[in-house]
Amino acid sequence: MKRWLRRRVDAAYERLLSREVSGAPTHVAVIQDGNRRYARSQGDDAPEGHRAGAETTERVLEWCQDIGVEELTLYTFSTENFERPAAENEALFDLLCEKLREFAEADRVHENEVCIRAIGETEMLPDRVRDAVGYAERRTRDYDAFVLNIALAYGGRSRLLNATRGVAECVAADELAPDEIGVEDIERRLYDQPVRDVDLIIRPGGEERTSNFLPWHANGNEAAVFFCTPYWPEFSKADFLRGIRTYEHRAESWRRTRARRALALLGAVSEPELAEARSIVDRFRDSLPSSERPDAETLEAGDSNGRAAD
């Protein structure tokens, strides 16, 4: 009876969260944490935890597509994971090969035009995993409706270091002037294909850290972060929706802050800056509490002050 009641409560909570969620982040990144601890809690070995986690991964992919997410990145195997017991890693590599080939053949992947890509130091992986990666990428490379990035042999610092070295080599070869280095020069050296800025990082398993995951695309975009306690195999749709709600609150806070800053600048800036400030206020004014929303006279006064300052 208690289990039945719990399912009813969970279902009701999920429906409530679904009604509260009104938008979706473009790019969600997930640190799939807790597979091994879940296995231990069930009296199983690590490979059983990884297999249970793979089932959660498939569900999360569907949830992302249902609400309109366009890109999902899964932190699957870090460079530090090579230090784990060889037998455990070999079992995980076998599972990766199985799932990559299964995904590459799945009807839902092709019906939804999912492009599968691997990011990371993939040359460090065993040949059989690299072959499976290549197969999945070839089978889905013409799709662009949804992007699934699988971070394998991944380390955020190492990717940034390699990109920086690439820029330095171009400068040394007089192919690029130091004062001409831009964001795009780093980004195109990070991965073979473009990766969108991260809007939301989700980490289950109880740890509250982002573990060197997509630092350029997440930190630079001030991504929202959602930490929760369930191990990855236990991660539910309600947990996922709570993460989306965290993103929405973060995005709303960002818009409100932008509007307040722009409003404060209206009376103390030059003409070009004034135009930008007014544009921001117009765009985000609905994010402000009603008591803080400027009326037309306030905006006109700011415009007059801006011209007087000139």
Rank of each mutant, 00 (worst) to 15 (best):
A132W: 02
G134T: 13
A136H: 06
E137W: 12
T140P: 08
R141F: 14
D142T: 12
A145Q: 05
I150G: 11
I150H: 02
A151F: 11
L152A: 05
R157T: 11
S158I: 09
L160F: 09
L161H: 13
T164M: 10
R165L: 15
C170Y: 08
V171H: 09
A172I: 03
A172V: 08
A173N: 11
A173V: 05
D174V: 12
D174Y: 13
L176S: 04
L176A: 05
L176P: 04
P178I: 09
I181R: 07
I181L: 07
R189I: 01
Y191F: 15
P194G: 08
V195Q: 04
V195F: 08
D197V: 07
D199T: 06
G206A: 08
E207K: 02
E208T: 07
T210L: 15
H217E: 12
E222I: 10
E222Y: 15
F226K: 00
F226Q: 00
C228R: 00
T229H: 11
P230Q: 06
Y231I: 03
Y231T: 03
K237P: 03
A238W: 02
D239V: 01
R242S: 12
R242T: 00
T246Y: 05
T246L: 05
T246S: 05
E248S: 11
E248G: 08
H249Q: 12
H249P: 02
W254H: 11
T257C: 06
T257M: 06
L274D: 07
L274V: 03
A275W: 08
E276L: 12
E276M: 12
